[in-house]
Design a protein around this nucleic acid. Structure first.
Lengths: 243, 243
DNA sequence: TATGCTAAGTTGTATATACAACCAAAAACC
DNA sequence: GGTTTTTGGTTGTATATACAACTTAGCATA
């Protein structure tokens, strides 16, 4: 059979991923072999194989010739691009997520961003500022400029229920991200909003995200420096810049 | 024919990569199609396809259905891991690099690192502390623990002429790196060494590097927080951790 | 001239088959 | 009992074939 619309290898991938999700196959345990998948999923071996291969490439599985295919231990690092959502993160660790929308509007693109967004003087851009909280304690200020071409309905979303991150990754799946991380002096707004101690700096992440070579969003995330850490497996070139 | 020892798809990959290297196919130009490779390389289409697929996955090529397979533009972000060398960086921007070696010795591995390095209580490890300077102004404290198995001659190097980074990347090319970035309070040693202002925090990078699954080095890099920024294109999952 | 259609070429998905390489456990052997 | 061999199962490589989906350019038609 040749039915492209379904894309059988994706179906098989989903089948495996679900099984792992539901703990049917646990870490380091064997998942069905290629031949078993041929039987249960009614596909050819090459199709089953492709599914297992891609999941291996994605770090979900690992394979040992002569023995089988196994569930990889919890991905500490995933080769996929995934920017974690702060709401998810808070919920995952048992917190109580909420947010406060401070600004959400269309405005003229600031001059220093014109070039990055490939816009002309006077062009509009979306701008939002919100504060993310855990148990009503502010933990992140998020200022964000969004490309109207990439996310035309950005202003119409209900950000009480979803974060900008979630919406944006839906309409424009990220393919690239660029970050700058630095510690900065806090301005009075941050000091009040994040309830900083005297002289406590903020840990600032500048993040630009692309979707297929168009800049989707430029955001600045501020955290109380004394309370946060950024962790990651950076498989990339990075560089230290003197200010 | 079934000859595993040669692995035809690798031959085809090499063929394509060489052609790109030798500028036979330039950026955004078409490389041979699957069917053309079948002819010129005398392989089946699936084998040619696998070669092109893997090179696409590696970022060397990109494919457009219905049009062809093309040479990807010069990797702005390299899929390879490259950790920039601070000496190079300083020289590049016209500075005057020097360093001061504070400690270089063999010692018993600290208990909190035993597990990471897969060592037993009492096993030896190499330990170095140095200060990197630009125009005699200290800009980075580097504390480093090095796996003796991965870099047995670590203690014998002359670190006036090369940095640990350069030596290590020569003997054990990195394949992975994990980082933690945070702002910390400075201890008295850092305060004096980095000539910090009162209450100025340090921007700290914890970095672990692997070479083919063996942990080569665990290092901590400290910078004056008010003067430095970390930049990168992070194609990865990263995560914010509350302390 | 402008529009729509066709044909050729390309990548994408899927199947069926064959043998190589490797592993682990069972069987055969001494 | 301990060692070697066999056997079955698994992943890895390679081929041949078929059709789907898409792009482009050229041709036919209105």
């Amino acid at each position: 059979m040749t039915e492209q619309n379904t894309r059988l290898y994706i179906t098989v991938k989903e089948f495996i991923k679900q099984g792992i999700e539901q703990q049917r196959w646990k870490e380091h345990k064997r998942v069905p072999s290629e031949n078993e998948l041929v039987e249960t999923c009614k596909v050819s071996r090459m199709t089953a194989r492709r599914a297992l291969d891609e999941l291996t490439e994605e770090g979900v599985l690992y394979r040992v010739q002569g023995r089988g295919t196994f569930v990889a231990p919890k991905k500490l690092y995933s080769p996929m691009l995934k920017i974690r959502n702060i709401a998810e993160e808070i919920i995952e660790r048992g917190g109580n997520y909420s947010n406060e929308l401070i600004l959400l509007q269309k405005e003229q693109c600031p001059t220093h961003l014109l070039e990055r967004f490939e816009l002309e003087e006077g062009d509009d851009i979306y701008h939002s500022i919100m504060v993310h909280k855990d148990n009503d304690k502010p933990i992140q200020i998020e200022q964000r400029y969004v490309n109207p071409k990439a996310a035309p309905d950005y202003l119409k979303q209900d950000y009480a229920s979803i974060t900008p991150n979630v919406y944006l990754s839906k309409v424009a799946p990220l393919t690239e991200a660029e970050h700058q991380i630095e510690a900065r002096e806090a301005d009075p707004f941050m000091q009040v909003t994040l309830k900083l101690q005297d002289n406590e700096p903020v840990l600032c992440i500048d993040r630009a995200t692309w979707s297929n070579d168009t800049l989707v969003s430029y955001s600045q995330l501020y955290h109380p420096a004394s309370r946060f850490r950024i962790t990651g497996r950076f498989k990339t070139e990075h560089q230290l810049t003197e200010l």
